[in-house]
Simulated assay, not measured.
Amino acid sequence: MKLTPKQQKFADEYIKSGNATESARLSGYKQPHVQGSQNLEKLSVKTYIDERMAEIKSKRVMGYTEAVEILTSIARGELKETVVVGTPIGVEEVKKEADLKTRISALKEIMKRYPGNDKLVEQQIRKLSAEADIAEANAREVTDNGTANEIRIIGFDRKAELDERSETS
C-alpha cells in the first residue's frame, strides 16, 4: 500500500521526533493525538518507518568497502590529520599526512582482508630480509680502505674454496 502525502509527512516527522502527536500536528491532522496513534497502527505507515529507520541506521554504520577506502587513503598519505604545533608566536594547527608507522599499520590491515596474498607477501618480506642481511654482512667485511677482505657468494665462502684449491695444487 502506498502512503498518502499526509501519512508520509507524518512518518517522516515521526522519524525525526519520535512523538506521534507532534508529528500528526505538523502533518496537518485535525486531531493529532488520535490520528497520530492511529497512523502508527497502520501497517503501511509502520513498514515505511521501519524501512527508513533501517536505511538511516545503515548509513551510520561503516561498511567494509568504506573501511578499506579509508585505510587506503591513510596508506597513500591522502588523508591528513590536524596537529597542534608550537611556534615562536604561539600555537598553530597544521595538516599532515600519517607517519610511516601509521601507514604501515593501515597497509597491514588492508592485507588482512586479502588472505590469498599472505604467502606471496610473506615470501617477498623473507627475500628482502635475506637480501638486507647479506648486504649488512658484506658491509661488515669491508676494511677501512674500502676493499673486501674476502669474496662471498650467497651461501658459499669463495675464499675458503680458493684456499683449498691452492693447497691441493
Rank of each mutant, 00 (worst) to 15 (best):
G18W: 08
Y114A: 11
E69T: 06
A137H: 06
E69N: 14
K80P: 05
N117P: 00
S129W: 00
G63C: 01
T147I: 12
I70V: 10
T87A: 03
E78A: 03
V61C: 06
E167V: 11
D50W: 03
Q38P: 02
K101D: 15
A160H: 05
E122R: 09
A160M: 05
L107T: 01
P32C: 11
E41C: 07
T143D: 15
E66K: 05
G36L: 13
K2E: 15
Q7W: 02
A75G: 04
G90H: 04
T168G: 01
L100N: 11
V34G: 06
V68K: 06
S17I: 07
K9D: 14
K127L: 13
E161S: 08
D163Q: 14
I104P: 10
Y29R: 05
Y14I: 12
L3I: 03
I154W: 03
Q7P: 01
V83S: 02
A132M: 10
K108C: 14
S37G: 10
F10S: 10
T102D: 14
L79F: 02
E122K: 06
A98T: 02
Q124Y: 06
E81I: 00
D144G: 09
E92P: 05
A20D: 14
E141G: 15
E22F: 03
A11S: 08
F156K: 12
F156A: 10
K6H: 00
E97D: 11
Y64A: 12
I104S: 07
N117H: 05
E41T: 09
A132H: 02
Q8Y: 00
E150S: 11
L128C: 03
V91G: 00
T102W: 12
K6L: 00
Y14D: 12
E141K: 00
L107Y: 08
E167A: 10
S169Q: 14
R165P: 10
E164C: 05
E141C: 07
N39L: 11
K95L: 13
R113C: 12
E164T: 09
P88D: 12
A160L: 13
Q8E: 13
I104T: 12
F10R: 04
S23G: 09
K101E: 14
L3K: 09
R140H: 08
G116A: 02
